[in-house]
Design a protein around this nucleic acid. Sequence first.
DNA 1: CCGAATTAGTCAGGGCACTGAGTATTTAAG
DNA 2: CTTAAATACTCAGTGCCCTGACTAATTCGG
Lengths: 154, 154
Amino acid sequence: MAAVDLTTHPGHLARRLQQAHYLLWNTMVSEEITSPQFAVLNALVAEPGLDQRTVGERVGLDRSTIAEVVSRLSRRGLLDKVRDPQDGRRFLLRLTDDGLRTHRKLTVRTARMNQVFLAPLSSEEQILFFDLIRRVADTAEGLRNPAEPLVAQP
Amino acid sequence: MAAVDLTTHPGHLARRLQQAHYLLWNTMVSEEITSPQFAVLNALVAEPGLDQRTVGERVGLDRSTIAEVVSRLSRRGLLDKVRDPQDGRRFLLRLTDDGLRTHRKLTVRTARMNQVFLAPLSSEEQILFFDLIRRVADTAEGLRNPAEPLVAQP
DNA sequence: CCGAATTAGTCAGGGCACTGAGTATTTAAG
DNA sequence: CTTAAATACTCAGTGCCCTGACTAATTCGG
């Protein structure tokens, strides 16, 4: 005996929340395009021609994962990937017309889905929901790089 | 133009939250045992001898995923898996001494990690955080099985 | 009692997410 | 100018997560 109540464990809650979202996305938005893929499309609508790493940074995907997601989107013909002539290490990404169309279509459905997903909360609670999660996620993210070490330069 | 603000998309937030948690878990709790694995150990501390499907139900893992997680835990010698003599379809799961020890050790570390993770929120906000996420996740979960169809029997 | 549904679990396949190691290119230091 | 460090990306490996198709065992209806 000494079992713990998982409903007070944020990690467990976060996982269940994501699963619930996955489910709803699949039925209400798309079975082809996933939520992370949509995030990438969206980043490229906002800033066409970004390089792969920066897109990953914008949407919160590490170098390996963004590579996989981009390769799937490119395979489906939703984006183009070309070497940066200025810097041969980079790949510059740009949506195709099809990618743009897909993003437009999914944007509408995503908005509908978000409404359904958040329906159990009042408007004020929804604001709070965003705020609390964002603060926790941002803070934990910040622990990654210990920022400026207290002593500046060596 | 028509890009969307992902910081108001619960799915995106949920994903970032889980990533942040994963990161912290990895550094503060264990690099061997994952959070879902701990959840399974915990379920078996509470109810030894559960069958695989029920454990999955308790911790929110579908039949395929629970099978993988259980197989890893069993490979590491943290649990035993035996056929139910009463019902030849089931596997009954039970922690080994090692599994019990591991659970005890991780319980302490997990509590510490949760404190750090939730540190940006006040006590009241933490309660709210749990409540809001739980309500959203539960409601979306509920949409899965449309409950009783309005008309009872055919 | 027997065939039909139901149930527990497996397997193949696709996608997300991380780490650590390796390659190529660019930039910085000497 | 040339070597060393940094940067963008790839690849292999592990683990979580889902669906759909399949097998084996049990239960239920007639």
